[in-house]
């Protein structure tokens, strides 16, 4: 049962949906107000629980997209057509509805400004794998950190890029932040960026040299994450500084 939060314990809470933002054709951001929320670190996630009228329950994990901001929590969810939860979250949920969640959970794939020890921060995401990385970028901007940060972000097509406008704005406003896109399926006619899946040549160009000791977070579909992690190791990066979060087969 959901109840009031006990400090140090993980309790189910009821969030109020205060806004739903259309990010792309298949992606929505749920803006939640969570009474009792104790804040979170960038990269952490929440467990969502849906209960059917007959009592059947289903639970999923979603990364938090927002920087910590009192009781406000944003989740960015990609619609998976055969999913049990994401079609409801992206298609049925309305402003004013309640949503049961608990969190924040996780710590291994979490970042705070102090964690980089002056070294650069390398974020690599595929599809909705960008969500926890966006929380890190937002946290970095909110803290006015100038730690050198690069996001390498793989999307299928230009119109599938999540947070496109905000990323462009943050790059313009934030010293030391760079965003590099690659589009794997289709490109606008005037596209001059990368046009393929992330590979060793791309990583050698975008990742810092291993001697710069970047702290690396990789998030996306399992295949992308494992390919990137093993390529970084082959390029000489310390596996102990490469943190991964796999989404499984589909991403989201």
């Amino acid at each position: 049962m959901a109840g009031t939060a006990v400090p140090g314990r993980l309790s189910w809470l009821f969030a109020d949906v205060v806004d739903v933002i259309v990010e792309t054709a298949r992606v929505r951001t749920l803006v939640l107000s969570v009474p009792g929320w104790r804040g979170h670190r960038a990269g952490q996630h929440v467990d969502i629980r849906l209960t059917a009228p007959d009592g059947y329950q289903v639970q999923r994990s979603y990364s938090i997209a927002s920087a910590t901001n009192e009781e406000r929590v944003e989740l960015t969810v990609e619609r998976l057509e055969d999913g049990e939860v994401s079609p409801y979250l992206t298609g049925e949920l309305r402003v004013g509805d309640k949503l049961e969640l608990r969190g924040p959970v996780g710590g291994y794939f979490a970042w705070e400004v102090a964690d980089t020890n002056g070294g650069p921060l390398l974020l690599i995401g595929g599809g909705s794998g960008v969500v926890p990385l966006m929380a890190m970028i937002r946290q970095r901007s909110m803290a006015r950190s100038d730690v050198p940060t690069r996001l390498l972000y793989s999307s299928r097509a230009f119109e599938d890029i999540i947070y496109q406008a905000e990323l462009a704005r943050l790059v313009a406003e934030s010293p030391g932040l760079e965003v590099v896109h690659t589009l794997t399926r289709s490109r606008p006619a005037d596209w001059t960026g990368y046009d393929r899946r992330i590979d060793d040549v791309m990583l050698a160009e975008v990742a810092w040299a291993p001697s710069d000791r970047p702290l690396v977070f990789v998030c996306g579909p399992t295949r992308l994450v494992e390919s990137v992690a093993s390529t970084l190791t082959a390029l000489g990066h310390d596996p102990g500084r490469v943190r991964t979060e796999r989404f499984g087969p589909t991403g989201g």
Partner: peptide, 20 residues
């Protein structure tokens, strides 16, 4: 191999069980 996740996926249940 495509179904492989990582230990982050168990963060919620483990926090519930261990209380941390």
């Amino acid at each position: 191999n495509d179904l492989r996740l990582d230990g982050n996926a168990a963060a919620g249940p483990l926090a519930e069980i261990f209380g941390r």
